[in-house]
Design a protein around this nucleic acid. Sequence first.
DNA 1: CTTGGAAAGTCAACAAAGCTGACATAAAAC
DNA 2: GTTTTATGTCAGCTTTGTTGACTTTCCAAG
Lengths: 170, 170
Amino acid sequence: MADGEGPAPARGDSLLFLTDEQLRKGIEAMFFAYRGFTADPDLILSERGYGRAHHRAIHFIHRSQGTTVNNLMGILGVTKQSLNRVLRTLIEDGLVRNEVGKRDKRERHLYLTETGAELERALSDAQRARMRDAYRLAGPEAVSGFRRVLEAMMDPQMQSHYDALKEHTG
Amino acid sequence: MADGEGPAPARGDSLLFLTDEQLRKGIEAMFFAYRGFTADPDLILSERGYGRAHHRAIHFIHRSQGTTVNNLMGILGVTKQSLNRVLRTLIEDGLVRNEVGKRDKRERHLYLTETGAELERALSDAQRARMRDAYRLAGPEAVSGFRRVLEAMMDPQMQSHYDALKEHTG
DNA sequence: CTTGGAAAGTCAACAAAGCTGACATAAAAC
DNA sequence: GTTTTATGTCAGCTTTGTTGACTTTCCAAG
């Protein structure tokens, strides 16, 4: 509560003095920013009768075309039943395609259809625009700091999902 | 898709070249990090039969003791009915106190009781610990970048709620 | 070849937390 | 004295999560 936003007093090189107030600001920043982060896609989604759960499924199917239901469950951290409800509507609506595995026929590999890819583009265009503007406003040095803190905030499990595609795509 | 994580090529001073891949990583970082961000409080809350909505109410009542229902609605961005359901249980359980306004008797000012403050401490201790560890891991320069990007990502409305307490508390 | 277990799908029931709409009361504002 | 504001409440609906039970398919190990 005491000194708040003043220049963060640091000891040594990487040891930080962090007041509860500074931490609280970080916590609230996450809260308010996450709202902005989802605001634009939410609008597009609600126009088409979908919700955030559909967005997440679409995003990660796009990111890893051919992924399985099981894998998607792990990434999204939801149950089979919860995910299935979302996938079923997306398949029925022709946004997602369901392909029986060749090696393992129990698995269903998930792909976006052209329609699905269109929605994905609309959603990620909006979200990327927001992210790009924020990056530009914050400046180049801020971007890497942003990412570093977020990565350090993840659970190790999620870190590995996050890292998964680093090798081949970035 | 092309060069991915390589050193971000910048043009001029504050103009950034941002590939879709870099932006996608930022988007996913937000997604996965938010899960870590809420994981610890969620555990504590579920032990006591509360949810995230209760946490948010408790947090912002603590932050601005004596705030009104109307104000809280604005901060949380939910309807009166939704907020009321949460507040009612918190008041019934003796975590929040409800005081008729002195100047304007229509208003109810909200305060945490001692029990409420205890839960708030448990929740924010956990959340601050996570935030502190992330900050320490990411290093001092990362922290300000983190905050700057998040602030730039907020909707202007939310920015003002976020800034509201900057003046008196930091 | 049989059996055990994994992947997927489905049904049912439930809960948290959001929404709209309608309505009531008290008090402030005009 | 009428209107508006702040709050609270009732009812009903939606989205998205949860358990638990059960089935089908099929890989893999015995």
